[in-house]
Design a protein around this nucleic acid. Structure first.
Length: 361
DNA sequence: GAAGCGTGGCC
DNA sequence: TGGCCAAGCTT
């Protein structure tokens, strides 16, 4: 491949076509490494338009490394609420605390030191080192993977081939812009479906374009069928309050708040499973009352149906047996807790129901 | 190396 | 509606 020609055409195109994004500073202005890093973490597996409002709110709330390092995890997760992949927020928080305590509050500009921080993988390290520090480090993300698959007309390029190719492009002036140019091309021109080859500055060097195979590159990977989880959710009332739990950090949605839950056994009713969820997860005896609602939610690798059931306490005080924390929360203060999307939906539906004890309880 | 991890948009 | 996909990382 003619890397020098690719490089110069990409840079020239990027100078003209690059989108104006909040984390991009004007040419010549030094970027803030904390902001570049934040943007890269938020953009992992997440679209630009989704990230925009989160990025702006985050910087108002946590404008600097020191501000974020000093914040409690619950505040951090609340700011991340709805963005998904919550381990990103936990890892970023931990990493920034390390930067504050061990690097004097300065984001390390050495690739090895930065790469050692939690949540920083090969891609993120290359992106932050090149964009924020001008280091000649490559990146391979989904865009780069697709662009190279088409340039080489390879249906499934190996990682061992992609990184050397990406690295061959970087040396020279403006390594951060070179990396961003490939990704920008992938995001706006060399798109997964209906690539705009007519607007591509490097179609003359593209093997897939020459062969007319751009729509079959890269080859789609086969998805596994999603398992289904039929889940009971006890919405436990006491006085004017409802019981929330904080999920263990290791688990799915780790560190986030929500309602207790238990996967239904075959043949088990939602009411029985809701009572069992309280018994096993909280060491608490509850009586199931009226069903509140059913909510379907699809995660990356599992489809869940949540059967929310109103419950009242029969006996005992809740203990966080299978959770990290429990809290009795007045309905009007639920908004202060970081809830994943499905739990928020359950809370909204449950709040529509009368909040006193069930008449038959 | 494969599986686990969120959510929303698009066709 | 349902499958696919998006600036990946960890175990």
């Amino acid at each position: 491949m003619d890397f020098p020609t690719l490089r110069s055409r990409l840079l020239a195109w990027y100078d003209d076509a690059r989108r104006d994004l909040p984390w991009r500073t004007p040419r010549g202005q030094a970027p803030d490494p904390y902001r570049v890093w934040l943007s890269e973490v938020m953009l992992q597996q997440t679209r630009v338009e989704t990230v925009r409002p989160y990025y702006a709110r985050w910087l108002e709330r946590f404008p600097t490394v020191d501000a974020l390092a000093a914040a409690p995890l619950d505040d951090v997760l609340k700011a991340w609420e709805g963005l998904g992949y919550y381990s990103r927020a936990r890892n970023f928080h931990r990493a920034v605390q390390e930067v504050a305590s061990r690097h004097g509050g300065r984001v390390p500009g050495e690739p090895d030191a930065f790469r050692a921080l939690p949540g920083v993988g090969r891609y993120t390290a290359g992106a932050v080192m090149s964009i924020a520090f001008g280091r000649e480090e490559p990146v391979v993300d989904g865009n780069v993977r697709r662009v190279f698959a088409r340039w080489t007309d390879d249906p499934a390029p190996a990682e061992d081939a992609l990184w050397p190719m990406a690295a061959a492009l970087v040396p020279g002036e403006r390594p951060g812009d070179v990396n961003q140019a490939v990704m920008e091309l992938g995001a706006t021109v060399c798109t997964p479906r209906s690539p705009r080859c007519g607007e591509c500055p490097v179609r003359g060097l593209c093997a897939a374009y020459a062969a007319g195979t751009q729509n079959e590159r890269p080859a789609p990977k086969k998805a596994r069928p999603l398992p289904h989880e039929d889940t009971a959710v006890p919405v436990i009332h006491r006085g004017g309050e409802v019981l929330l739990v904080r999920r263990p950090v290791r688990a799915r949605l780790g560190g986030m708040w929500g309602f207790p839950q238990a996967i239904r056994h075959p043949g088990e009713s939602a009411s029985a499973a809701a009572e069992r969820a309280a018994a096993e997860g909280l060491d608490l005896a509850v009586r199931a009352g009226a069903p509140v609602a059913s909510v379907d939610h699809t995660f990356t690798h599992v489809r869940a149906t949540y059967h929310a059931v109103r419950c009242t306490v029969v006996w005992g005080e809740p203990r966080a047996v299978r959770y990290d924390e429990v809290a009795w929360v007045p309905w009007e203060r639920i908004g202060g807790y970081a809830l994943p999307v499905a739990q928020k939906r359950i809370a909204a539906l449950a709040a529509l129901h009368p909040t006193g004890p069930h008449p038959l309880a």
